[in-house]
Design a protein around this nucleic acid. Structure first.
Length: 427
DNA sequence: TTCGACACATACCA
DNA sequence: ATGGTATGTGTCGA
Protein backbone atom coordinates (compact mmCIF):
# COMPACT_ATOMS: atom_id res chain seq x y z
CA UNK A 1 0.00 0.00 0.00
CA UNK A 2 0.98 3.54 -0.41
CA UNK A 3 2.78 5.16 2.34
CA UNK A 4 3.33 8.69 3.23
CA UNK A 5 5.89 10.90 4.72
CA UNK A 6 5.66 10.19 8.29
CA UNK A 7 5.06 6.73 7.38
CA UNK A 8 7.77 4.39 7.81
CA UNK A 9 7.84 1.57 5.64
CA UNK A 10 10.79 -0.49 6.46
CA UNK A 11 11.10 -1.69 2.97
CA UNK A 12 11.09 1.71 1.44
CA UNK A 13 14.06 2.64 -0.56
CA UNK A 14 15.28 6.14 -0.55
CA UNK A 15 13.57 6.84 -3.76
CA UNK A 16 10.46 5.26 -2.52
CA UNK A 17 10.51 7.46 0.46
CA UNK A 18 10.91 10.54 -1.62
CA UNK A 19 8.14 9.42 -3.88
CA UNK A 20 5.94 8.73 -0.93
CA UNK A 21 6.52 12.17 0.37
CA UNK A 22 5.64 13.66 -2.93
CA UNK A 23 2.55 11.57 -3.22
CA UNK A 24 1.50 12.46 0.22
CA UNK A 25 1.92 16.05 -0.52
CA UNK A 26 -0.29 15.90 -3.49
CA UNK A 27 -3.03 14.52 -1.36
CA UNK A 28 -2.44 16.99 1.31
CA UNK A 29 -3.66 20.40 2.06
CA UNK A 30 -1.52 23.19 3.21
CA UNK A 31 -2.45 25.45 5.97
CA UNK A 32 -0.80 28.73 6.58
CA UNK A 33 0.53 29.63 9.90
CA UNK A 34 -1.43 31.49 12.46
CA UNK A 35 -1.20 35.16 12.00
CA UNK A 36 1.40 36.87 14.02
CA UNK A 37 -0.88 38.78 16.20
CA UNK A 38 -3.03 35.81 16.81
CA UNK A 39 -0.17 33.69 17.71
CA UNK A 40 1.20 36.25 20.03
CA UNK A 41 -1.97 36.81 21.82
CA UNK A 42 -2.38 33.17 22.26
CA UNK A 43 1.01 32.64 23.56
CA UNK A 44 0.75 35.43 25.91
CA UNK A 45 -1.99 33.74 27.68
CA UNK A 46 0.53 31.22 28.61
CA UNK A 47 3.38 33.48 29.18
CA UNK A 48 4.94 32.29 26.03
CA UNK A 49 5.62 34.73 23.33
CA UNK A 50 7.08 33.99 20.10
CA UNK A 51 8.54 37.05 18.61
CA UNK A 52 9.98 35.07 15.83
CA UNK A 53 6.82 34.37 14.18
CA UNK A 54 7.11 34.11 10.53
CA UNK A 55 6.32 36.59 7.96
CA UNK A 56 2.83 36.05 6.82
CA UNK A 57 3.32 37.15 3.31
CA UNK A 58 6.24 34.97 2.85
CA UNK A 59 4.22 32.11 4.10
CA UNK A 60 1.36 32.75 1.82
CA UNK A 61 3.64 32.90 -1.11
CA UNK A 62 5.15 29.70 -0.05
CA UNK A 63 1.83 28.09 0.28
CA UNK A 64 0.85 28.70 -3.22
CA UNK A 65 3.99 27.03 -4.30
CA UNK A 66 3.51 24.09 -2.24
CA UNK A 67 0.66 23.05 -4.23
CA UNK A 68 3.14 21.90 -6.69
CA UNK A 69 4.82 18.67 -6.25
CA UNK A 70 7.93 19.69 -7.61
CA UNK A 71 8.36 22.50 -5.25
CA UNK A 72 7.72 20.24 -2.41
CA UNK A 73 10.33 17.86 -3.43
CA UNK A 74 12.83 20.58 -3.67
CA UNK A 75 11.82 21.61 -0.33
CA UNK A 76 12.34 18.21 0.99
CA UNK A 77 15.79 18.23 -0.26
CA UNK A 78 16.52 21.54 1.19
CA UNK A 79 15.24 20.38 4.42
CA UNK A 80 17.54 17.53 4.43
CA UNK A 81 20.32 19.92 4.20
CA UNK A 82 19.13 22.78 6.24
CA UNK A 83 17.16 22.27 9.31
CA UNK A 84 16.91 25.90 10.02
CA UNK A 85 15.35 26.73 6.81
CA UNK A 86 13.00 23.94 7.09
CA UNK A 87 11.83 25.34 10.29
CA UNK A 88 10.57 28.29 8.44
CA UNK A 89 9.10 26.27 5.73
CA UNK A 90 7.36 24.01 8.00
CA UNK A 91 4.72 26.56 8.37
CA UNK A 92 3.21 25.17 5.45
CA UNK A 93 2.35 22.24 7.17
CA UNK A 94 1.23 19.54 5.11
CA UNK A 95 -1.80 18.12 6.46
CA UNK A 96 -1.65 14.62 6.20
CA UNK A 97 -3.60 11.69 6.45
CA UNK A 98 -2.63 8.26 6.26
CA UNK A 99 0.33 6.75 7.67
CA UNK A 100 0.93 3.66 9.05
CA UNK A 101 -0.03 0.78 10.40
CA UNK A 102 -0.72 -1.82 12.48
CA UNK A 103 -2.83 -3.98 14.27
CA UNK A 104 -4.10 -4.55 17.57
CA UNK A 105 -7.53 -5.33 18.29
CA UNK A 106 -7.79 -3.45 21.37
CA UNK A 107 -9.73 -0.45 21.80
CA UNK A 108 -8.97 2.31 24.00
CA UNK A 109 -9.26 2.16 27.64
CA UNK A 110 -9.07 5.13 29.71
CA UNK A 111 -5.61 6.24 29.27
CA UNK A 112 -3.94 7.08 32.40
CA UNK A 113 -0.52 7.85 33.35
CA UNK A 114 1.14 4.63 33.59
CA UNK A 115 3.28 3.31 36.21
CA UNK A 116 6.60 4.81 35.98
CA UNK A 117 9.06 3.15 38.22
CA UNK A 118 10.06 6.39 39.76
CA UNK A 119 6.63 7.71 39.88
CA UNK A 120 5.32 6.12 42.90
CA UNK A 121 6.42 5.61 46.30
CA UNK A 122 8.23 2.48 45.52
CA UNK A 123 10.82 1.86 48.01
CA UNK A 124 14.05 0.26 48.54
CA UNK A 125 12.85 -3.21 48.75
CA UNK A 126 10.73 -2.91 45.72
CA UNK A 127 11.67 -4.35 42.47
CA UNK A 128 11.36 -1.10 40.76
CA UNK A 129 13.93 0.53 42.85
CA UNK A 130 17.39 0.08 41.48
CA UNK A 131 19.83 -1.53 43.83
CA UNK A 132 23.48 -0.77 43.76
CA UNK A 133 24.32 -3.36 41.24
CA UNK A 134 21.71 -2.06 38.93
CA UNK A 135 22.86 1.43 39.41
CA UNK A 136 26.29 0.37 38.49
CA UNK A 137 24.99 -1.30 35.42
CA UNK A 138 23.02 1.73 34.63
CA UNK A 139 26.16 3.65 34.09
CA UNK A 140 27.77 0.86 32.23
CA UNK A 141 25.19 -0.65 30.00
CA UNK A 142 23.97 0.88 26.86
CA UNK A 143 20.39 1.18 25.97
CA UNK A 144 19.27 -1.31 23.41
CA UNK A 145 18.27 0.72 20.39
CA UNK A 146 15.23 -1.37 19.74
CA UNK A 147 14.18 -2.14 23.22
CA UNK A 148 10.45 -1.97 23.63
CA UNK A 149 11.28 -0.58 26.98
CA UNK A 150 11.91 2.67 25.23
CA UNK A 151 8.20 3.13 25.16
CA UNK A 152 7.33 4.92 28.36
CA UNK A 153 4.38 7.07 29.15
CA UNK A 154 5.43 10.66 29.48
CA UNK A 155 4.08 13.57 31.47
CA UNK A 156 0.40 14.27 31.72
CA UNK A 157 -0.92 17.16 29.74
CA UNK A 158 -2.72 20.15 31.13
CA UNK A 159 -6.46 20.48 30.92
CA UNK A 160 -7.86 21.84 27.72
CA UNK A 161 -7.49 25.57 27.43
CA UNK A 162 -9.88 27.40 25.18
CA UNK A 163 -8.91 30.18 22.85
CA UNK A 164 -11.89 30.60 20.59
CA UNK A 165 -15.38 29.34 21.18
CA UNK A 166 -16.98 26.82 18.93
CA UNK A 167 -20.68 26.83 18.13
CA UNK A 168 -22.95 24.35 16.51
CA UNK A 169 -24.33 25.88 13.36
CA UNK A 170 -27.71 24.27 13.71
CA UNK A 171 -28.70 25.71 17.04
CA UNK A 172 -25.91 28.08 18.02
CA UNK A 173 -25.11 25.90 20.96
CA UNK A 174 -21.74 26.46 22.54
CA UNK A 175 -19.62 23.39 21.97
CA UNK A 176 -16.92 22.37 24.36
CA UNK A 177 -13.86 20.71 22.81
CA UNK A 178 -11.61 18.45 24.82
CA UNK A 179 -8.12 17.47 23.78
CA UNK A 180 -6.40 14.30 24.90
CA UNK A 181 -2.76 13.50 24.36
CA UNK A 182 -0.10 11.21 25.65
CA UNK A 183 3.60 10.89 25.10
CA UNK A 184 4.41 7.23 24.57
CA UNK A 185 8.12 7.31 24.02
CA UNK A 186 11.04 9.55 24.70
CA UNK A 187 10.54 11.05 28.13
CA UNK A 188 11.27 9.86 31.60
CA UNK A 189 10.88 11.44 34.92
CA UNK A 190 13.74 12.25 37.24
CA UNK A 191 13.52 11.78 40.96
CA UNK A 192 12.98 15.42 41.39
CA UNK A 193 9.96 15.18 39.22
CA UNK A 194 11.34 16.80 36.15
CA UNK A 195 10.70 15.20 32.82
CA UNK A 196 13.71 14.47 30.73
CA UNK A 197 14.14 13.78 27.05
CA UNK A 198 17.15 13.44 24.81
CA UNK A 199 17.75 15.64 21.88
CA UNK A 200 19.19 12.80 19.88
CA UNK A 201 16.36 10.41 20.49
CA UNK A 202 12.89 10.10 19.10
CA UNK A 203 9.72 10.71 20.97
CA UNK A 204 6.23 9.59 20.11
CA UNK A 205 3.02 11.40 20.93
CA UNK A 206 -0.60 10.61 20.15
CA UNK A 207 -3.51 12.96 20.47
CA UNK A 208 -7.22 13.13 19.72
CA UNK A 209 -10.08 15.46 20.46
CA UNK A 210 -13.75 15.19 21.21
CA UNK A 211 -16.63 17.61 21.38
CA UNK A 212 -18.57 17.36 24.58
CA UNK A 213 -22.06 15.99 24.09
CA UNK A 214 -21.37 15.16 20.49
CA UNK A 215 -20.94 11.52 19.74
CA UNK A 216 -19.49 10.66 16.40
CA UNK A 217 -22.76 10.48 14.55
CA UNK A 218 -23.91 13.76 15.87
CA UNK A 219 -20.63 15.33 14.95
CA UNK A 220 -20.87 13.96 11.45
CA UNK A 221 -24.26 15.49 10.98
CA UNK A 222 -23.33 18.98 11.93
CA UNK A 223 -21.33 21.99 11.03
CA UNK A 224 -19.62 24.39 13.34
CA UNK A 225 -18.52 27.94 13.43
CA UNK A 226 -16.27 30.15 15.46
CA UNK A 227 -15.07 33.71 15.46
CA UNK A 228 -11.98 35.01 13.85
CA UNK A 229 -10.25 37.94 15.38
CA UNK A 230 -9.96 40.39 12.58
CA UNK A 231 -7.44 43.12 12.48
CA UNK A 232 -6.61 45.96 10.22
CA UNK A 233 -3.44 46.15 8.22
CA UNK A 234 -1.74 47.92 11.02
CA UNK A 235 -2.55 45.18 13.38
CA UNK A 236 -5.22 47.08 15.22
CA UNK A 237 -7.87 44.73 16.43
CA UNK A 238 -11.10 45.47 14.68
CA UNK A 239 -13.44 42.90 15.98
CA UNK A 240 -14.50 39.38 15.36
CA UNK A 241 -15.96 37.77 12.31
CA UNK A 242 -18.17 34.78 12.46
CA UNK A 243 -16.63 32.05 10.35
CA UNK A 244 -17.60 28.54 9.52
CA UNK A 245 -15.16 25.82 10.37
CA UNK A 246 -14.47 23.83 7.23
CA UNK A 247 -12.92 21.10 9.28
CA UNK A 248 -10.89 20.49 12.38
CA UNK A 249 -7.20 19.76 12.53
CA UNK A 250 -4.61 18.97 15.15
CA UNK A 251 -1.05 20.04 15.29
CA UNK A 252 1.91 19.68 17.57
CA UNK A 253 4.21 22.54 18.44
CA UNK A 254 7.09 23.06 20.82
CA UNK A 255 7.85 26.18 22.77
CA UNK A 256 10.67 27.35 24.94
CA UNK A 257 10.48 28.90 28.35
CA UNK A 258 12.70 31.57 26.97
CA UNK A 259 10.37 33.84 25.12
CA UNK A 260 12.97 34.87 22.67
CA UNK A 261 13.65 31.42 21.48
CA UNK A 262 11.49 29.85 18.87
CA UNK A 263 11.99 26.20 18.40
CA UNK A 264 10.58 23.62 16.14
CA UNK A 265 10.29 19.93 15.70
CA UNK A 266 11.27 17.62 12.92
CA UNK A 267 10.13 14.20 11.99
CA UNK A 268 12.14 11.43 10.43
CA UNK A 269 11.07 8.36 8.57
CA UNK A 270 12.23 4.97 9.68
CA UNK A 271 15.12 5.49 7.35
CA UNK A 272 16.31 8.32 9.49
CA UNK A 273 19.43 9.79 7.90
CA UNK A 274 18.74 8.01 4.65
CA UNK A 275 15.21 9.33 4.33
CA UNK A 276 13.60 12.76 4.18
CA UNK A 277 12.90 14.94 7.19
CA UNK A 278 9.94 17.22 7.54
CA UNK A 279 8.02 19.19 10.09
CA UNK A 280 5.36 17.21 11.94
CA UNK A 281 2.20 17.29 9.83
CA UNK A 282 -1.02 19.01 10.76
CA UNK A 283 -3.65 16.33 10.84
CA UNK A 284 -7.15 17.11 9.63
CA UNK A 285 -9.10 15.21 12.23
CA UNK A 286 -12.48 14.07 13.41
CA UNK A 287 -13.25 13.33 17.04
CA UNK A 288 -11.64 10.17 18.32
CA UNK A 289 -10.55 8.26 21.37
CA UNK A 290 -6.96 8.01 22.39
CA UNK A 291 -5.61 4.46 22.01
CA UNK A 292 -3.89 3.11 25.08
CA UNK A 293 -0.15 3.05 25.47
CA UNK A 294 0.19 -0.60 24.54
CA UNK A 295 -1.62 -0.02 21.29
CA UNK A 296 0.62 2.81 20.31
CA UNK A 297 3.60 0.77 21.22
CA UNK A 298 2.32 -2.08 19.12
CA UNK A 299 1.65 0.16 16.17
CA UNK A 300 5.32 0.88 15.81
CA UNK A 301 7.17 -0.38 12.76
CA UNK A 302 4.61 -2.76 11.47
CA UNK A 303 5.05 -4.21 8.01
CA UNK A 304 2.43 -6.87 7.97
CA UNK A 305 -0.42 -5.75 5.77
CA UNK A 306 -3.30 -6.93 7.89
CA UNK A 307 -1.76 -5.55 11.02
CA UNK A 308 -1.33 -2.24 9.32
CA UNK A 309 -4.90 -2.34 8.20
CA UNK A 310 -6.18 -3.00 11.66
CA UNK A 311 -4.04 -0.28 13.08
CA UNK A 312 -5.33 2.14 10.53
CA UNK A 313 -8.79 1.54 11.80
CA UNK A 314 -7.70 2.82 15.14
CA UNK A 315 -5.97 5.89 13.86
CA UNK A 316 -7.99 6.80 10.81
CA UNK A 317 -11.52 7.38 9.71
CA UNK A 318 -12.23 6.35 6.15
CA UNK A 319 -14.71 8.77 4.69
CA UNK A 320 -15.27 6.88 1.46
CA UNK A 321 -15.99 3.76 3.40
CA UNK A 322 -18.38 5.66 5.60
CA UNK A 323 -20.29 7.03 2.64
CA UNK A 324 -20.48 3.61 1.19
CA UNK A 325 -21.55 1.89 4.36
CA UNK A 326 -24.22 4.42 5.10
CA UNK A 327 -25.39 4.63 1.54
CA UNK A 328 -24.79 8.30 1.66
CA UNK A 329 -24.47 10.14 -1.55
CA UNK A 330 -21.07 11.68 -1.45
CA UNK A 331 -22.21 14.67 -3.40
CA UNK A 332 -25.18 15.35 -1.24
CA UNK A 333 -23.35 15.31 2.00
CA UNK A 334 -23.79 18.67 3.59
CA UNK A 335 -22.01 17.92 6.83
CA UNK A 336 -18.59 19.01 7.91
CA UNK A 337 -17.32 15.69 6.67
CA UNK A 338 -17.26 16.67 3.07
CA UNK A 339 -14.88 19.52 3.70
CA UNK A 340 -12.01 17.37 4.80
CA UNK A 341 -9.24 17.34 2.20
CA UNK A 342 -8.84 13.61 2.04
CA UNK A 343 -10.79 10.42 2.54
CA UNK A 344 -8.33 9.28 5.10
CA UNK A 345 -9.00 11.40 8.15
CA UNK A 346 -7.27 11.08 11.49
CA UNK A 347 -9.23 9.99 14.50
CA UNK A 348 -5.99 10.05 16.36
CA UNK A 349 -3.03 12.14 15.34
CA UNK A 350 0.10 10.13 15.82
CA UNK A 351 3.48 11.79 15.85
CA UNK A 352 6.34 9.36 15.64
CA UNK A 353 10.07 9.80 15.28
CA UNK A 354 9.88 13.38 16.38
CA UNK A 355 12.89 15.27 17.62
CA UNK A 356 13.62 18.82 18.59
CA UNK A 357 15.45 20.42 15.73
CA UNK A 358 19.13 20.08 15.98
CA UNK A 359 19.44 23.82 15.88
CA UNK A 360 17.99 24.38 19.29
CA UNK A 361 20.41 25.45 21.94
CA UNK A 362 19.96 23.14 24.79
CA UNK A 363 21.48 24.92 27.64
CA UNK A 364 23.37 27.73 26.14
CA UNK A 365 24.25 30.82 28.00
CA UNK A 366 23.70 31.03 31.67
CA UNK A 367 19.94 30.74 31.43
CA UNK A 368 19.69 28.18 34.05
CA UNK A 369 16.11 27.22 33.98
CA UNK A 370 15.46 26.90 30.33
CA UNK A 371 12.97 24.28 29.44
CA UNK A 372 10.61 23.30 26.70
CA UNK A 373 6.96 22.42 26.49
CA UNK A 374 4.99 20.54 23.89
CA UNK A 375 1.61 21.89 22.91
CA UNK A 376 -1.17 20.16 21.08
CA UNK A 377 -3.49 22.55 19.33
CA UNK A 378 -6.98 22.00 18.01
CA UNK A 379 -7.40 24.13 14.94
CA UNK A 380 -10.46 25.22 13.08
CA UNK A 381 -9.62 25.46 9.42
CA UNK A 382 -11.56 28.21 7.72
CA UNK A 383 -11.62 29.94 4.38
CA UNK A 384 -10.91 33.60 4.39
CA UNK A 385 -12.27 36.22 2.02
CA UNK A 386 -9.82 35.18 -0.59
CA UNK A 387 -10.75 31.56 -0.26
CA UNK A 388 -7.43 30.90 1.34
CA UNK A 389 -7.50 28.39 4.11
CA UNK A 390 -6.47 29.67 7.49
CA UNK A 391 -6.06 27.94 10.81
CA UNK A 392 -7.71 29.32 13.90
CA UNK A 393 -6.51 28.12 17.24
CA UNK A 394 -9.52 26.84 19.09
CA UNK A 395 -8.03 25.13 22.09
CA UNK A 396 -4.84 23.57 23.33
CA UNK A 397 -3.14 21.48 25.98
CA UNK A 398 0.46 21.44 27.02
CA UNK A 399 3.02 19.42 28.90
CA UNK A 400 4.72 20.46 32.07
CA UNK A 401 8.28 21.75 31.61
CA UNK A 402 10.52 19.33 29.76
CA UNK A 403 14.25 19.14 30.07
CA UNK A 404 15.95 18.21 26.86
CA UNK A 405 19.41 16.87 27.23
CA UNK A 406 21.83 17.73 24.51
CA UNK A 407 24.49 15.72 22.83
CA UNK A 408 27.18 16.42 25.30
CA UNK A 409 28.76 13.21 26.54
CA UNK A 410 28.17 14.44 30.04
CA UNK A 411 24.53 13.70 29.53
CA UNK A 412 25.29 10.11 28.81
CA UNK A 413 27.80 9.07 31.32
CA UNK A 414 25.70 9.55 34.32
CA UNK A 415 22.20 8.42 34.13
CA UNK A 416 21.51 5.72 31.67
CA UNK A 417 19.10 6.76 29.05
CA UNK A 418 16.32 4.36 29.41
CA UNK A 419 17.35 2.78 32.57
CA UNK A 420 17.51 5.12 35.44
CA UNK A 421 18.23 8.40 34.03
CA UNK A 422 17.25 11.20 36.18
CA UNK A 423 18.83 10.71 39.54
CA UNK A 424 20.33 14.06 39.13
CA UNK A 425 18.75 17.12 37.86
CA UNK A 426 20.26 18.21 34.68
CA UNK A 427 20.40 21.87 35.03
C1' DT B 1 31.12 23.02 21.94
C1' DT B 2 28.07 21.82 18.69
C1' DC B 3 26.54 19.60 14.54
C1' DG B 4 26.23 16.57 10.40
C1' DA B 5 27.70 12.17 8.97
C1' DC B 6 28.82 7.78 9.48
C1' DA B 7 29.27 3.62 12.25
C1' DC B 8 28.22 0.04 15.41
C1' DA B 9 25.26 -2.73 17.89
C1' DT B 10 21.09 -5.11 19.05
C1' DA B 11 15.98 -6.07 19.74
C1' DC B 12 12.06 -6.12 16.79
C1' DC B 13 9.36 -8.05 12.89
C1' DA B 14 7.93 -11.38 9.62
C1' DA C 1 15.77 -19.49 13.09
C1' DT C 2 17.19 -16.24 9.80
C1' DG C 3 17.71 -11.83 7.56
C1' DG C 4 16.29 -7.28 7.08
C1' DT C 5 15.10 -3.17 9.95
C1' DA C 6 14.96 0.69 13.12
C1' DT C 7 17.11 3.44 16.34
C1' DG C 8 20.16 4.61 20.74
C1' DT C 9 24.40 6.39 20.84
C1' DG C 10 29.78 6.37 19.96
C1' DT C 11 32.91 8.90 17.15
C1' DC C 12 35.32 11.76 13.71
C1' DG C 13 36.28 16.10 12.00
C1' DA C 14 34.82 20.79 10.60
Amino acid sequence: MMTIPTDDHPSLTEDDAAAAVAAANSAVVNIPHLKDDEAQQLHQQYEHHNPHQHDQDQISAQLSHQLSHQHYQQQQQQQQQHHHQQQQQQLQQHLHHQLQPQQQQQQQQAQRQVHHPLNHGHHLGMLNQPNETELLESVTKKVAPRSSDLFRVGPRFSDTRHHQDIYCKRNDMDVNPVLHARIDRGFEIGENGTWIGYKRNYFTLVTAFSLENFDFDRFIQNKFYTYEKSSARNGEPVGENKVEISYFAIRLVAKCSDNDVSISLIQHTAKRDKGPQFPPPIYPAVPGDLPDHETVKASCNKRNGSKIENMNKVFYFDRAEYYHDTNLDTLKDESILKNYPSDSIARVARFERIQFTSSIRIKSTSVNSRYFTLHVELLGIIEDEDLQIQPILLSSIETPPLIIRGRSPSNYHKERTSGYRGHLVPQ
